[in-house]
Each structure stands twice: as structure tokens, then as C-alpha cells.
């Protein structure tokens, strides 16, 4: 595997505002990579630097083995992009807009154009000005996902799509992964990321957590609910137990550092354990934990 995207210590300022302050990020070939972060975390800025639309102030960014600023045109031949907020030319029909987007790159549309229009249930004969947000999104997605390229950069790709269309989108991304294409997807919809993505980069201000989804889960805590006969309050003092709560008589809940599982389970067993459930952290929790930058959830 080779790195399709390699970003080191990227800095970008807009006047006095620092949008990116030393970002690192790697996406390997053939991965479906998610890029998560709250609004204003610099996701779009990063993507625009990768597309050569913004010039980085310092640090380095390599895309498909080239320099995104210097080699922009040559690199764009090998990728497609769907922006978060899709605006189209109001006078053009949806079908015309798809063709225009294809013609703006030399390896134009494939046979998939018709197939995807059908799958996304788009009426390509309507003018773009009459489309709803979801339909404009479909136009951009059809143009992108029907292209035969190495890298697909999708910003909030399912915003505005209904659940059925989200399924169509998910299926298509899986097909692309099976063909060995690389996808970078910035999103807020965790269920989608959990379903689709191999790796996650989470970004909040300067802190970045990155890795394979399973690895990230490993680093974090499980949520444990247990029922015991004896007084459980002593558990709260054991190392590795957090957010300890007594729910009702005998029922307790806490979060558990995974590397302390063995010790804590022994202590639980000693309390006359009646039942226990332990859930791995959902991406949701992972996400919230990384986003709350104050110390409470550490």
C-alpha cells in the first residue's frame, strides 16, 4: 500500500485567523478514509489545500505522489470532488450539469452515467434552479461517482439525501472500495462512517486522533452496566473506572479503560456479581470524547 494523501504539519492562516495549525494526516491507497471534526475544525480548508484551491502557509501536503498546488491540473485528472454545499448553474438542466462536470476533465463520462442516474432516481431533464438541495447533491454525486478515477473526495456527501438514497450512495462507495479505489469522506454522520470507513481522522483544533477504527476503539473505554449484591461504592476508587454511577439498588454503571479490564472484572466478581453487560464504545462516544476538549472525559 502506498500513501495517496500525506500531510505533515500543515498550517493555513486566513489573515489573523489560524485555520490549520500543524495538521498531520495520511490516507493509504485503497482505503475508505473518514475525516471527522466539528464545524470550523478546518476539514474543508484541508480538502481545499489538497485540491490546490488554497495555498498552504507552511508544512507539506502530497496528493497522489504530487504537489497539490503545483501539479493541480494533472492531479485533478485522477480525482473527483463533491463539495459540501453544491451549487449548480441555474439555467442548465441536471443532465447538462453532469455532462459539463465530466467534460471539465479529459477522461469523461463512462457508461455508469445512465446507470447512476437511474439508481439515484434523478430526473436529468429538469433545470438546476428547480432542484431541491437533495437533488442538487445527487447531480454532483452522479457526476463524481460515475467517473473512473483513483481518488474520490466527498464532503458531507449524504447531506440532503433521503435514507433510501443514502443506501444507494453507500452501495456505490462499497463498489468503489471493492475496485480498489480510494475514498476520502468528510462527514458528521457517524453511522455512515462506521458502516463505510476503514480509517478515521478526528480533528479538533490541534488534537488529532487517527487510526483504523478497531485500533481507536481499543484505545478507549467500554461502557459497563452491572448488577451486584454487595455494596459497590468501593469500585469507584479502583484505577481504570470512570463516571461511576449507582443507577438503582444494586445496579451500577461506569466506563472502563480497556487495559484495566481484568483487574476491574475481578473486583466486580468479588461483589457477588449477578449480571454484567459491556459495550465497546460507539463512534458516537469516540467522537464526543475527542470533541469535548475540556478535561472532563479524559
Amino acid at each position: 500500500m502506498s500513501a495517496i494523501i500525506q500531510i505533515n504539519q500543515l498550517v493555513k492562516d486566513f489573515g489573523p485567523v489560524r485555520a490549520l495549525d500543524g495538521l498531520d494526516m495520511t490516507v493509504q491507497s485503497g482505503e475508505v478514509a473518514a475525516f471527522l471534526g466539528p464545524n470550523g475544525a478546518g476539514k474543508s480548508t484541508t480538502i481545499r489545500v489538497l485540491l490546490g484551491l488554497l495555498k498552504a502557509d507552511s508544512g507539506s501536503a502530497a496528493l497522489l505522489g504530487g504537489d497539490p498546488w503545483r501539479d493541480a491540473v494533472a492531479l485533478h485528472r485522477r480525482l473527483v470532488y463533491v463539495p459540501g454545499e453544491v451549487t449548480l448553474w441555474p439555467q442548465l438542466t441536471g443532465g447538462e450539469a453532469i455532462d459539463v462536470l465530466h467534460r471539465l476533465r479529459s477522461n469523461a463520462s463512462g457508461p455508469r452515467r445512465g446507470e447512476l442516474i437511474e439508481r439515484f432516481e434523478l430526473d436529468p431533464s429538469k433545470k438546476c434552479r428547480t432542484y431541491s438541495k437533495g437533488n442538487r447533491q445527487k447531480v454532483a454525486l452522479i457526476a463524481a461517482l460515475s467517473s473512473d478515477v483513483e481518488l474520490y473526495v466527498l464532503e458531507e456527501p449524504t447531506s440532503g439525501l433521503d435514507p433510501l438514497m443514502e443506501v444507494v450512495f453507500t452501495d456505490r462507495v462499497r463498489e468503489l472500495r471493492d475496485e480498489g479505489r480510494t475514498v476520502l469522506l468528510s462527514s458528521h454522520i457517524l453511522a455512515e462512517v462506521e458502516k463505510l470507513c476503514d480509517t478515521v481522522t478526528i480533528r479538533n483544533g490541534q488534537t488529532v486522533q487517527a487510526g483504523r477504527l478497531e485500533e481507536l476503539r481499543h484505545l478507549t473505554r467500554s461502557h459497563v452496566v452491572a448488577t451486584v449484591r454487595q455494596d459497590p461504592t468501593g469500585l469507584a476508587r479502583i484505577e481504570g473506572v470512570h463516571d461511576f454511577e449507582v443507577l438503582e439498588e444494586g445496579e451500577i454503571s461506569f466506563t472502563l479503560d480497556r487495559d484495566r479490564t481484568s483487574d476491574v472484572m475481578k473486583a466486580l466478581a468479588a461483589l457477588d456479581l449477578l449480571g454484567v453487560t459491556s459495550n465497546p464504545p460507539s463512534l458516537e462516544e469516540l467522537f464526543l470524547r475527542q470533541y469535548t476538549s475540556d478535561g472532563t472525559s479524559r
Binding site: L53, A72, V73, H76, Y81, P83, E85, T87, L104, V153
Partner: peptide, 15 residues
């Protein structure tokens, strides 16, 4: 301003 140029420039279009 409308954001269409972003879409265009992300294609194989020179600066």
C-alpha cells in the same frame, strides 16, 4: 461566491 467555481476548479481545470 456561489461556490460553483470550486466545483469547476476541482476538475481538470487550470488555475
Amino acid at each position: 461566491e456561489a461556490g460553483r467555481l470550486e466545483l469547476v476548479r476541482a476538475a481538470e481545470v487550470g488555475r
